[in-house]
């Protein structure tokens, strides 16, 4: 009667807990704290499940052997005692879990110092990421990538410009919704250098499945270096192909939605492309960023991400090549 697949299945995946988008592989304080209560819950609930199933198994075995005469011996007093003991056990167990949960919740809210402020705005179906600064000219704007310094708390202010989204980076922290009209703040304290993947976790329409966030945790120096590089305007186009691509960018519809600081393109309804080529993916995690993928994307974004708001812009193959040259030069 015990569900046999359950036991086999539980053993196998324990080998594969690690991952770039896994809550079972904490790489930050918040995820680790939640991992603690996960283990407590798993232990207590697992124990209660086993206890219940043992009782059930005993009842079945005993029932099979029961005879007519046994029917009269109802065992009410013993069962009554057992019931009250069971209630006490359950109350104790639930109280332990509730209190532990409350304490963990408080721990996650403990104030932090030297906080890095980040601002993430969710849109259908990409993320605008900003690192605000007191000097407005030094506010870093990028898209679909989040760089964080290790061993330092970052507070991510979450806003949305359309529907409800949810930012979830399982290796680092629990999720928090991006709700219109509210600013929610997600705290993250990464402890391990590496790359992780976040994903939108609130159904937001056609491309909810393709709204991922590339998260890089770096040393403080590497983070600062990245930030300085990204505050600089775009690399000017060097080769003939790149120059032609830059011209095409402002002649074609691209300029209506995208910004490339240092060029004439300054729109903000689409992702900022100033340092586009330094990203690992395109389309908010829809494809790894390569020349081929970019060419396919420019030809028809809908093939990769059906319903995406970027239209297919009419252009010849040669024009597409030049644009790819230009965009891939924007490191």
């Amino acid at each position: 009667m015990r569900p046999a697949p359950w036991i086999a299945v539980v053993a196998l995946p324990l080998a594969g807990c690690a991952g770039v988008q896994s809550a079972l592989d904490p790489a930050g304080d918040e995820a680790a704290t939640i991992g603690d209560i996960w283990h407590l819950m798993l232990g207590v609930c697992g124990f209660m499940f086993a206890l219940t199933m043992l009782f059930l198994a005993w009842a079945i075995v005993r029932g099979r052997r029961a005879r007519e005469a046994d029917a009269e011996a109802r065992h009410e007093p013993a069962l009554s005692l057992a019931l009250h003991g069971w209630i006490a056990l359950v109350v104790a167990g639930l109280a332990v879990l509730a209190i532990a949960s409350f304490l963990v919740d408080r721990r996650l809210l403990a104030p932090a110092t030297d906080v890095l402020r980040v601002r993430v705005t969710g849109m259908q179906w990409w993320w605008r990421v900003e690192y605000p600064s007191d000097d407005p000219g030094r506010t870093l704007v990028t898209a679909n990538e989040l760089h964080l310094p290790v061993d330092r708390t970052s507070e991510i202010e979450l806003r949305t410009e359309d529907v409800i989204h949810s930012l979830w980076i399982p290796n680092l922290a629990g999720k928090l919704d991006l709700v219109p009209g509210r600013v929610n703040t997600l705290r993250v304290t990464p402890r391990r250098i590496g790359g992780f993947r976040g994903q939108c976790a609130e159904f937001c329409g056609l491309d909810h499945a393709w709204m991922a966030l590339d998260v890089r945790v770096e040393s403080a120096d590497a983070f600062e270096a990245w930030r300085q590089r990204h505050l600089a305007p775009a690399k000017p186009p060097l080769s003939a192909g790149e120059r032609e691509g830059a011209q095409l960018f402002v002649q074609k519809p691209c300029v209506m939605c995208h910004a490339i600081r240092g060029s004439d393109a300054a729109a903000s309804t689409g992702p900022d492309l100033t340092h586009f080529a330094s990203r690992a993916t395109l389309g908010a995690g829809a494809r790894p960023l390569t020349r081929e993928a970019l060419a396919m994307w420019l030809a028809d974004p809908n093939r990769i991400k059906p319903g995406v708001h970027m239209p297919a812009v009419p252009m010849t193959a040669a024009e597409r090549d030049r644009l790819v040259d230009y965009l891939m030069s924007l490191e």
């Binding site: 809550a23 995820a31 704290t33 939640i34 209560i37 996960w38 819950m41 879990l97 509730a98 532990a100 949960s101 963990v104 919740d105 996650l108 949810s166 979830w168 399982p170 922290a173 629990g174 999720k175 928090l176 976790a201 609130e202 159904f203």
Partner: peptide, 11 residues
């Protein structure tokens, strides 16, 4: 039911 754990498991 636990808030912190739900923040990982929700959705």
């Amino acid at each position: 039911a636990s808030v912190p754990l739900d923040l990982q498991l929700h959705d």
